[in-house]
Amino acid sequence: MNHNIDHTAGHGTDMPKAVKIKKIVDENYNTKTFFLDTKLEAVPGQFIMFWIPRIGEKPFSLSYIGNNTAITVQLKGKFTKKMFELSVDDIVGIRGPYGNGFTPQKNACVIAGGCGVIPLVPLVEMLDKPVVIVGAKTADAILFKERLNGNSKLYVATDDGSLGIKGFSTDIARELLKRKKFDVVYTCGPEMMMKAVFNLTEQHNIALQASLERFMKCGFGVCGQCIINGFRVCKDGPVFSSEQLRQMTEFGKFARLKNGKKVNLKEYYSWRS
């Protein structure tokens, strides 16, 4: 008997679905990619909720979509430490994909900072010869160099100058946007970097799509935990347009702790790390 009754148009269920870990790849000293034994209909920029039984559940952007489903994770806190202890054939739970994702457009510039490059990589592979600027602390920290190089003109910035220019991805962007006209800019990275990118695209009158991050609970737009001003990052985002970013007085300034208290980004990031 089919008990999977859908009471309305729209959603049926949003429960963690058990999936096997198919493959784990070390991307660098603190980043791993987890390939999952499932196929999801997803677009670049969407995320899944990743559940480890008895440990917890957190959102992660998809780093591979299509024939492969994978998330790429930087070691950061307690949860990612547990993730790094997982092995091939372990069973975890996933739900999603959630969020809106990026909308691919022509004549694009992609600006990434640190692990912000992760949701942008499947987008780059989908775009028509975009210009890509990636920034990271060191040469080792640059993720997916080959995947990015395959389809784009790649610029690199590192904090220590070990690859590309010594500086930030926004330093390259500032010069590049003066010389070349783009129709769209995509960005993901530390919020202060994205704020700088937003200021640049506003100055040059270019449409921006920025993928934002906030602490999440439900992932489907009802609890209100990941709110930025009136926008739900999980449901209205995580990708927001220039027009939406203009309305966000909290963008680049404030975020909410687990208890909902609004704090400055510095306090928020010190809690998250």
């Binding site: 429960m15 609970k217 489907f220 208890n259």
Partner: peptide, 20 residues
């Protein structure tokens, strides 16, 4: 987390009254 899920006939939640 997980604090809010949808089981097919409604939602189940244990947010735990988080508030500032």
């Amino acid at each position: 987390n997980p604090t809010v899920l949808s089981f097919g006939h409604g939602l189940i939640n244990a947010v735990g009254l988080s508030n500032p």
